[in-house]
Nucleic acid binder design. Structure first.
Length: 332
DNA sequence: TGCCAGGCCCTCTTTAGGGCCTT
């Protein structure tokens, strides 16, 4: 059986009043634990793009890059072969992606999510939940750069994940953290951020529902991942799509801690994994591994907090919120 | 010389500071 066909789509869930996320995603997460690292993904680790502006033709090389990945808590060493996949969807990403399309994408009229929530409607046909993680050259969103990005669409199915190294065009000083070296990313085959953004937008677009929203989930995303992504977009004169919402699992973990009256407990992703006895399948601090781990943590957190998809949307914030809070703080 | 990230939360608190979390 193909892994993708085992994934339980959110769209297939019958409408009901109580939309427990844990119930919705039960099958999805069950499958996730089996399929992490499988071939239901789009990897973009070896690419070359020409002429992003003006819809010029671009070429993609098929140059496999091999990286060694150490398994956490294990002496086993795995060799992962990264190369451009040949699925039709990837062809869609790599052909005819230009800024005009992105602008067209931004002109789409989205549904009124608040109204849908107020009417207690099932949001599963409107919201795409994506866990994601980035690896960077450091903590500074201004001075550091993204060197790896990975996404997992929780509705599963074919091409539900996206991962790639990113060429930062600078040295990587913190390889001891993620084991991504300067040599691995500073290569012509590895896409630069300005090349990657249109493809990333196209991928997300392929996963979202008609007139729907995309809920990005990251751990400590409010302070780190989301502003980092926003800065990269700003640097390359691209606006964050208006239908992107963000949820921070660190805030959910704090909420759970508070509800339980627990204090002074670590709520790092690693500690949450230990708490929930989640097996990390691969090397932590690699984007895809952490995005997969986060998907499992999210399931447990939303289950413990008894959150529906609507509840999660209510706890989300927008790029505007992040910018606004920063401006407000600066003016204080 | 001192700083070199920044948002959120807690507390010995809000006219502030320290710790956690992300790489």
């Amino acid at each position: 059986m193909r892994a993708g066909s085992m994934i339980f789509s959110l769209v297939q869930v019958p409408r009901c009043r109580i939309h427990r996320l844990a119930n919705y995603w039960g099958e999805t997460f069950h499958s996730l634990s089996k399929t992490c690292g499988n071939n239901s993904s789009v990897r973009l680790l070896s690419s070359r793009i020409y002429g992003l502006q003006g819809g010029q033709k671009r070429k993609w090389t098929r140059r496999p890059i091999t990286t060694n990945t150490e398994g956490t808590g294990s002496t086993k060493s795995r060799s992962t072969k990264h190369e451009i996949l040949s699925e039709p969807i990837l062809k869609t990403f790599t052909e005819n992606v230009n800024k005009e399309q992105v602008v067209e994408f931004d002109n789409v009229q989205y549904c009124n999510l608040q109204q849908e929530i107020a009417q207690n409607k099932d949001l599963s046909s409107l919201v795409t939940v994506i866990t994601f993680d980035i690896e960077t050259t450091g903590f500074s969103r201004e001075n550091d750069r993204i060197i790896e990005i990975a996404l997992r669409d929780l509705q599963g199915g074919e091409n539900s994940t996206f991962q790639t190294l990113v060429n930062p065009e600078r040295c990587v000083p913190n390889s001891h953290i993620h084991h991504i070296t300067t040599h691995m990313v500073n290569r012509p085959e590895v896409p630069r951020m300005e090349e990657l953004i249109p493809i990333l937008l196209q991928f997300v677009r392929s996963r979202q529902k008609p007139r729907g929203y995309v809920l990005w989930v990251a751990h400590n995303g409010r302070a780190f991942d989301f502003p980092f992504i926003m800065n990269e977009f700003r640097r390359h004169s691209t606006e964050i799509p208006p239908n992107w919402l963000f949820v921070d699992t660190l805030l959910l973990a704090r909420e759970l801690m508070k509800a339980r009256g627990t204090k002074s407990t670590s709520i790092s992703l690693g500690t949450l994994c230990e708490h929930y006895r989640i097996h990390v399948d691969g090397q932590a601090h690699r984007a895809m591994v952490d995005a997969n781990t986060l998907a499992l943590v999210l399931r447990r957190l939303t289950g413990d907090l008894k959150l529906t998809l609507s509840d999660l949307v209510k706890r989300s914030f927008t790029a505007f919120d992040i910018i606004n809070s920063k401006k407000k703080k600066n003016s204080d």
